[in-house]
């Protein structure tokens, strides 16, 4: 029986008296693969931050694996890739391996130590993202795409049950992007990892995710792609062309893929 991984009920968030999110509700169970899409400023990143407990909502309830985020004791179950590292220093003096290893801290008791026995899982995550040969390079000396792969490896290294990725493919080239999405698909299908991806690329996410959450300060649509494609309300909201684009990519993968 699927376990409820995330539950968001009536979530609202205000910033300087302007409403960023209004009465947002949705839930995720084991093995869900959800694409969160919406225009700029629609509250996608805010929704994720409130879900993870980084922002205090002005109303509503959030639970992670049945716990309030503030009381959540098992962060090793969550892999998170922020949208961009606002404080990322291009001269940060840590190697790729040191950064990826930070993803394992949630599995460590006090004092948290990363040792030789962790090398295998770190190397596996690095191999998965094709960056094993550059593990001893300084992260600041890599290209944007390589840095992004390192950060994705960091999110994956603890083998999380819930993976939350905020615009993970923006710096990746098309080949790396396809490989990244197939990796996620394997994790989702074989290991039943629950995946949440925020993206602007509705066409591509339509190809992979099983559900779509369209956000524009409130939930415009949440459901399967089939129901999205059949919804006349969504035709009215998006226009025929956009709806067709999303549905076409999804159908191409599920029917012929």
């Amino acid at each position: 029986m699927p376990i409820e991984i995330v539950s968001v009920q009536g979530l609202s968030f205000q910033y300087n008296s302007s409403e960023i999110l209004t009465d947002v509700s949705f839930s995720l169970t084991t093995g869900d693969y959800v694409g969160i899409v919406g225009p700029n400023g629609s509250g996608k990143t805010t929704l994720i931050k409130a879900t993870l407990g980084f922002l205090e909502p002005s109303g509503g309830r959030v639970s992670l694996f049945g716990y309030r985020p503030a009381d959540f004791p098992a962060w090793y179950k969550v892999g998170y890739l922020p949208q961009k590292l606002n404080t990322f220093n291009p001269h940060f003096p840590a190697t790729v391996k040191e950064i990826v290893a930070l993803g394992l801290l949630s599995r460590k008791g006090f004092p948290r130590r990363i040792g030789k026995p962790d090398d295998i899982v770190i190397d596996n995550a690095l191999s998965l993202m094709d960056i094993l040969p550059i593990k001893n390079e300084l992260i600041g000396e890599l290209s944007g795409g390589q840095q992004q792969r390192a950060l994705i490896a960091k999110a994956l290294v603890s083998e999380p049950e819930l993976l939350i990725l905020d615009e993970p493919t923006t710096a990746l080239d098309p080949e790396a992007r396809e490989k990244f999405f197939s990796t996620l698909q394997s994790l989702n299908e074989l290991k039943k990892v629950t995946i949440v991806i925020i993206t602007h690329d509705i066409g591509t996410i339509g190809k992979y995710a099983s559900r779509l959450l369209y956000l524009d300060k409130r939930v415009i649509f949440y459901g399967t792609f089939d129901s999205f494609c059949l919804s006349t309300d969504m035709t009215d909201y998006f226009g025929e062309y956009s709806q067709h684009l999303i549905c076409h990519r999804h159908d191409a993968e599920t029917v012929h893929g």
Partner: peptide
């Protein structure tokens, strides 16, 4: 010595550090 990894994590990115518990 006790908080080396925590300090590195927070110094690199505080938000990701929070998501590591």
């Amino acid at each position: 010595l006790f908080f080396y990894q925590e300090l590195l994590s927070i110094t690199f990115d505080e938000e990701s550090a929070k998501a590591s518990g």
